[in-house]
Amino acid sequence: MSDRHPMRVLIAEDEFLLADDIASWLERAGATVVGPLPSVERTLARLKGAPEIDVAVLDINLNGELIYPVADELARRDVPVVFYTGYDLEVPKRFSSAMKISKSASSGDLVNAVFEQRLRSLATLPPMRREGLEECVLQLVPALRLRARLLLPSPRAADALVERTLERAICEVSARAEGQDLDTWLHQIMLAVFAQSPFGPN
């Protein structure tokens, strides 16, 4: 049985309709949603019995209570966070690695922020060395774009190919062979994605 799984995203949001929208956006992007949860108390309770969480989308203010106890628990687990808020609040310095997205931003901005946070966390997964130098997913993006442009002459289609490659990599990271070179693995995924849609996105 394969141990690969979609990216699991925890959502803490107290506005019902918005929470439902966020869940729909992320599910359409291929994620599995945990929640949405409307309060700090319920989110902490869910975390106790929740499966592994890959990324969390947190409204800073849930019914008048700040979300920081949840963010602290997620930080303890090394789970990256996206603060999604309608307030212009400065977050504590201990959350400097978190991303902050305004509720006025587009659905694409939020989904991209979630994927970017996941990619940052993947960059710390071993093995991450090539010829003695550390490498990470984000550092490999330029090479992926170059390969994509060799496959697809349209810059827009090439960038879409890179995006689909990274999305699949997120979903299939648990299936990556131990010791497999990250660069080689990503390019193999790109070729597989390209083979399924050789003329670009439908």
Rank of each mutant, 00 (worst) to 15 (best):
L119S: 12
D54Q: 03
A192Q: 13
I101L: 05
D109C: 03
P92Q: 06
R46C: 13
L119A: 07
P153V: 00
G30A: 12
S96Y: 09
V173W: 00
E27W: 01
I60G: 05
I101R: 01
L133E: 14
G49R: 00
I101Q: 01
E65A: 15
L89R: 12
A113H: 07
N63R: 13
E178V: 09
E15T: 12
P36C: 06
M1A: 11
A71G: 05
L133N: 13
A105F: 08
I67S: 07
D21T: 13
I11C: 00
L144G: 06
A148K: 05
S102D: 15
V114E: 04
Y87V: 08
E90Q: 12
R118K: 09
E65I: 15
V70P: 08
T184L: 14
S104G: 14
D14T: 11
L144F: 02
L58I: 10
L110R: 00
S2T: 14
Y87G: 05
D59T: 06
T165N: 03
R129N: 07
L140F: 10
S154W: 08
A175V: 03
V137T: 14
A195V: 02
V114M: 08
A158K: 09
S96W: 10
M99S: 15
K93W: 01
L74R: 09
E163P: 01
E73T: 10
V57T: 09
P155K: 02
V81M: 11
Y87M: 13
G30W: 05
P153I: 01
R42A: 15
N202R: 11
N202K: 12
L122C: 04
R120F: 02
A148F: 08
A12L: 10
D3K: 03
L133V: 13
L151G: 07
R145V: 13
K93Q: 13
R94S: 05
V173G: 00
G200K: 11
S97D: 15
L18Y: 05
G132Y: 01
V111T: 07
R156S: 08
S104R: 14
V193I: 14
P201M: 00
L138H: 08
A143N: 13
V40T: 00
C171P: 00
E163D: 12
S106Y: 09
E163Q: 10
F16Q: 15
A105H: 06
V173S: 06
G35P: 10
R4K: 15
R94M: 05
L138V: 04
R147G: 02
E131P: 01
V9W: 04
E41Y: 04
R46H: 15
